[in-house]
C-alpha cells in the first residue's frame, strides 16, 4: 500500500502515535482478558493463589448449579425491567424538557444530576430514603394511606428486586433523556406542520412523527444501556448485596462472591467468562449498528 517514501514515513509516524495505546491495551485489557479465560480452567484458592487444572470442570459445575441459572435469570429480570423504565421515563422527560418551560437549563441540570453522581452517593441516599423506621418513603406512604404498615424495601422479596429496579431507573434514565433530547432538537418542524394539516392530534403526532424519527437513536441507546445494565455491579451490590439470600444476585455479584467470599478465583473467572459470552450477543449487535451509522456518516 504505502509505496512512496513520504506515505511510508507517515504510516510509521501514525504507528508511533498509536503505540502507547496498543501497549497499554495489551497490558491491562488484552492480557487480563486472555488470562480470565485461562484462569477459568483452574480452581484457584484466593488467599494463597494456588491453582489446580480442572479443564472445563468449572463450566460443567456451573451448568449444573441452580445458583448460576438463578443469577442469570436475575440479571435478565433486572436488565429488562430497569431498562424498560429507563426508556419510558427517558422519552417522557425528554419530550417534557423539549417544551418551553421556565428555567429550562436548571431543570435539565437537575434531571441529569443522578446520572453523574457516584453510585455510592446514590445508594447511601436511597438507603436512607428506604430506611424502615425513619425513612421518608415509608412515612409518606403511611400518612397518604398507601401502606398500612412500614415496608421492608430491601430485605424481602419481591420488594428488593423492585427497589433496585427503581433506583436503577432513577440513576440511569438521564442517559436516555440526553440522547433523545439531542435527537428531538433535530427533527424538522415541517414534519409536525404536515401532520397537523392532516389532522393528527398530539398523540398521533408522537406515534407517527416523533417515534419513527427517534427509532435509530433508540436502538443504539437500548443496546448500550442493555450492555451496561447487564454488567451493573455497584448499584446492586451496595443496595442489597444480592440479598435476601440470592434473590437479587446478578452474575457480576456472583463473580465477586465466588472470588472473595468463597475464595475460588477459577470458578469466579468461569462465571465472568460465561457472562461475557451472553453479553457478546448485545455487543456484536451494537458494534454492527455503530459500524453502520459510521459508514452512513462517512457518506
Amino acid at each position: 500500500m504505502a509505496t512512496n517514501p513520504l506515505d511510508r514515513r507517515y504510516a510509521l509516524l501514525g504507528a508511533v502515535l498509536i503505540a502507547p495505546t496498543i501497549l497499554i491495551f495489551s497490558a491491562v485489557i488484552i492480557y487480563p482478558l486472555v488470562s480470565a479465560i485461562y484462569l477459568s480452567l483452574f480452581t484457584i484458592f484466593t488467599p494463597t493463589l494456588r491453582g489446580q487444572w480442572v479443564g472445563l470442570g468449572n463450566y460443567a459445575e456451573l451448568m449444573a448449579s441452580n445458583e448460576f441459572w438463578r443469577s442469570l435469570a436475575n440479571t435478565f429480570i433486572w436488565t429488562v425491567f430497569t431498562l424498560t423504565l429507563q426508556i419510558v421515563l427517558g422519552i417522557a422527560v425528554a419530550l417534557m424538557l423539549h417544551q418551553n418551560m421556565v428555567f429550562r437549563s436548571l431543570a435539565r441540570s437537575l434531571i441529569l444530576f443522578p446520572y453523574f453522581v457516584s453510585t455510592v452517593v446514590a445508594v447511601l441516599v436511597w438507603r436512607w430514603l428506604f430506611n424502615d423506621l425513619y425513612g421518608i418513603l415509608n412515612y409518606l406512604a403511611l400518612i397518604s394511606g398507601l401502606l398500612q404498615r412500614p415496608l421492608d424495601w430491601l430485605g424481602s422479596m419481591p420488594n428488593a428486586m423492585i427497589s433496585i429496579v427503581l433506583v436503577g431507573a432513577w440513576k440511569y434514565f438521564p442517559f436516555v433523556v440526553i440522547a433523545v433530547l439531542a435527537r428531538l432538537q433535530s427533527i424538522p418542524d415541517q414534519l409536525y406542520e404536515a401532520a397537523k394539516m392532516d389532522g393528527a392530534g398530539p398523540i398521533a403526532r408522537f406515534f407517527d412523527v416523533t417515534l419513527p424519527q427517534l427509532k435509530e437513536v433508540l436502538v443504539v441507546v437500548i443496546l448500550l444501556r442493555a450492555i451496561w445494565d447487564f454488567k451493573e455491579f455497584d448499584l446492586i451490590y451496595l443496595l442489597t448485596g444480592g440479598g435476601p439470600v440470592i434473590s437479587t444476585q446478578t452474575l457480576p455479584l456472583m463473580v465477586y462472591k465466588e472470588a472473595f467470599g468463597l475464595n475460588d478465583m477459577g470458578r469466579a473467572s468461569a462465571i465472568a467468562v460465561s457472562m461475557m459470552l451472553v453479553m457478546l450477543v448485545f455487543m456484536v449487535l451494537y458494534l454492527r449498528s455503530a459500524g453502520r451509522s459510521e459508514r452512513e456518516g462517512a457518506r
Binding site: 487480563p32 482478558l33 455491579f233 478465583m265 473467572s269 465472568a272 461475557m276
Partner: peptide, 15 residues
C-alpha cells in the same frame, strides 16, 4: 469500551 470490568478485575488483581 463495552467490556465488563468484572471480567478484567480478577486477572488485574493477580497481575
Amino acid at each position: 469500551y463495552l467490556l465488563p470490568s468484572v471480567v478484567l478485575v480478577l486477572p488485574l488483581y493477580l497481575l
